[in-house]
Design a binder for these strands. Structure first.
Lengths: 209, 209
DNA sequence: ACTTGAGGAATGAATATTCATTCCTTTTCC
DNA sequence: GGAAAAGGAATGAATATTCATTCCTCAAGT
């Protein structure tokens, strides 16, 4: 054993020490997100995932019952993180318009800085998993959607928001923002501070009374 | 041979006559769209497709080099049909605002009446195929996008449309419409004539000066 | 009018591949 | 030493694609 193989041995030792329970799960999640965001669900076989994550194929199944469960949990992770980000400084007591702008800017900031999270959620939403999910969400609003609904109702009461169904409010308010973020991430446009503001503002124009 | 088996024989004869070249291809396309729209790309194995289309497995490969090519050509078919619909009565010489409303209403009408086409294109756009496709489209605008671009430029000249990049114009103008159609098709909302008008009108509010 | 046979369309069983999942072995940790 | 974790080769089901064969049509020959 020469100096090189010895230090390699130490490296492995260290890596394994660090990579205990929590870290392996994290590693799998991180890698799965990267791969799926770039190649899609069906472009990321479990074998590839285990290889890139540096774990055995069987190990994945210690943490996730099967691929479907992995995919859904991955989505929940992102959703939870975004929700936390949104709620951190949410201006609960401020006027409707201000809350609206806050949400809009949060979406843009968060996902521009986490393009993988964005591409993952987009894939998820537009897959069989997503449809089922969306149905639940609309019927039984939770988390960030719940706040949006409160916002919508407050806006309707105060007559600052148009008389439209909640669902259409979501569409008018957030669809252009999401699409714009996608275009930014794919490199079709660059969202600077001015443009971000202009987009959120335009969305507000489309829902305000 | 009784009367029934004889007429059945004629029916087969006729069917075979009719089901020549063009018709087989049509049958494959139609069936593939139905299946994929409902089950997704990966929920429609070629064996199922050939069974439902009433053709041999090998026959599909006489018309389409492989599954990927089939998927892409299917998209082109839809795109072509929509383009034709949009152009049929396009009010070229009328004011920008009127053209905008025409396009918005066309999108809603067309896809509400062809939910399979809609679900197919949505799946396509949000898959690895779609990204590549979108890139080409934005760089080298053709068909309906070309008309939208002309509209945008005319609107900018006349100062009736905001000073924003073309891509963002697309996002503001069409994202909410597409999302609303999706919600209608999935049954989350019902778009009556009033609501359709209100949506297109709101989109106009968001891009107009 | 009837037969023959060439051309090519259609078929679907067989093949090759891909992939999620399992299972047994090795390693790590206490 | 033994339990828990990790590894990764082996498995078998699912799937796209191929290809040898059949079937159909129609034109030519008698």
């Amino acid at each position: 054993m020469n100096i090189h193989s010895f230090s390699f041995f130490l490296f492995l030792k260290k890596k394994n020490k660090i990579m205990s329970k929590i870290d392996k799960r994290e590693e799998i999640i991180k890698t799965a997100m990267e791969l799926i965001a770039e190649q899609g669900f069906h472009g990321t076989p479990m074998a590839l995932l285990s290889e890139k994550a540096g774990v055995g194929a069987g190990t994945i199944y210690r943490y996730f019952e099967n691929k479907d469960v992995l995919i859904k949990e991955l989505y929940n992770e992102i959703d939870k993180k975004f929700k936390a980000f949104l709620m951190e400084n949410y201006p609960h007591e401020r006027p409707v318009r201000e809350c609206f702008f806050y949400i809009g800017k949060c979406i843009i900031e968060y996902f521009i800085n986490k393009p993988l999270d964005f591409r993952y959620t987009e894939q998820f939403h537009n897959s069989p998993y997503g449809i089922e999910f969306r149905r639940n969400k609309l019927i039984n609003l939770t988390g960030e959607d719940y706040f949006c609904r409160i916002l919508f109702e407050k806006g309707r009461e105060q007559q600052v928001i148009k008389t439209i169904p909640l669902v259409i409010f979501f569409d008018l308010a957030f669809a252009p923002i999401i699409w714009a973020v996608r275009d930014h991430i794919l490199g079709f446009v660059t969202l600077d501070e001015d443009l971000k503001m202009q987009i959120v503002s335009s969305c507000w124009d489309s829902v305000k009374m």
